[in-house]
Computed example of a mutant assay.
Amino acid sequence: MAGTGETLPGGFIAEVVRVGDTVRRTRPANADFVAALLVHLASTAPGIAPAYLGVDEQGRQVLSHIDGVVPWRDREEPAFFADAALTGLAGLVRALHDACAGTGLAGGAETVCHRDLSPKNTVYRAGPAGPVPVALLDWDLAGPGRRIDDVAFAGWHWGTLGGDADPAELGRRCRLLCDAYEGPAGGLLPRAELVTVMWDQIGTTWRGIDAGADRDEPGMRRLRAAGAVETVRGWHDWLHRHRRAVSAALGTT
C-alpha cells in the first residue's frame, strides 16, 4: 500500500498528494477522458503534461511527478508573469492543441482545450530570461473546444484586471500570447473574438463558483469563502468597462 505522502499546496478542489515520484489526485468526473488524453500527449507532445500511471488502491488518479516550481500563491513573483513566461506558455498551449487537432479526442471540435490554464496549474523551471513554463497540470476540466478558448483563458489568468489595472497592458499581453502562439504565419486565432471570449469565461467562472457553493460543493464553498466570487465578478465588470481599450491594444479595433 502506498504511503500517506506529502500533501501539495494550492488545491481548492482536488486533494493532491505526492508519494515518491508520483502524484495522487482525486479522480475527476471525466477520468476516462483525462486518462486517454494524457496517454495521447505522452507520445505526441512529450513532457507537457504528467504521465498517466493508473489508479491506486484508494481510487486516486496516479500521475508522474514533474520537477519544477508551481507558483500557487497569487502573484508571488512577477517573473512568473513576465513576457518570457508568456511566450513559453504560448508554446505549451500550441503544442497541446496541435497534438489533439483532428483526433478522436477532439471529436468534431477544433482541438482539445485544457480549460483551466493558470499559473497555479503550471510547472516552471529556470531559463536564461527567467522562469519559463515547461508543463501543465490539473487536466480535470479538459475537453473539446476552440484554440481561442485556451488562449483567452490564459490571457486573463496571466493578466491583471480590476481596480486601477491598465487595460492597455492587458491588451498588449494578450497580443503577445497570440503572436507567440501563432508564430510568423499567423492566422490561427480569431483575435477579434478574444475579448468577448474572455468576458464570457469570467462571467461563467464567478457564476459557477456561486452556484456550486449554493449546491454545497466543498471546493466551491471554499472558493466563495475566500472571496473568489466578489473578486472575479469585479474583473467581469472591469473588463466590460474597458473592453474597447483592451481590444485597441490587442489590435482588433
Rank of each mutant, 00 (worst) to 15 (best):
A126V: 13
W139G: 02
A192I: 13
T122H: 02
V229H: 03
G145L: 03
I66P: 10
I66G: 07
R172F: 05
E77M: 07
G102K: 09
L96A: 13
A225S: 09
I209S: 08
D179F: 03
P184W: 11
I209E: 06
A106I: 06
A228Y: 14
R221N: 14
L170C: 03
D214C: 11
A142D: 02
R175G: 06
L170R: 01
R244F: 13
G11T: 05
V16H: 05
L38C: 02
L137A: 04
A129M: 13
Q58H: 10
V69I: 15
I66W: 06
D138L: 08
D166Y: 03
R115L: 09
A35E: 14
G5E: 15
L141G: 04
H114L: 05
E15P: 03
P128H: 08
A31I: 08
V132G: 02
R191Q: 10
G186W: 11
D149G: 05
A180F: 06
P28W: 00
R173M: 10
R125W: 06
L188N: 07
R75E: 15
G163T: 10
W199M: 15
Q201Y: 02
T205V: 09
P50H: 03
R27Q: 11
D164C: 12
R244G: 14
P28H: 03
T7N: 13
G127F: 05
R115M: 09
A165F: 05
I66M: 12
G234K: 01
I148H: 01
T87E: 08
L239D: 02
S247H: 08
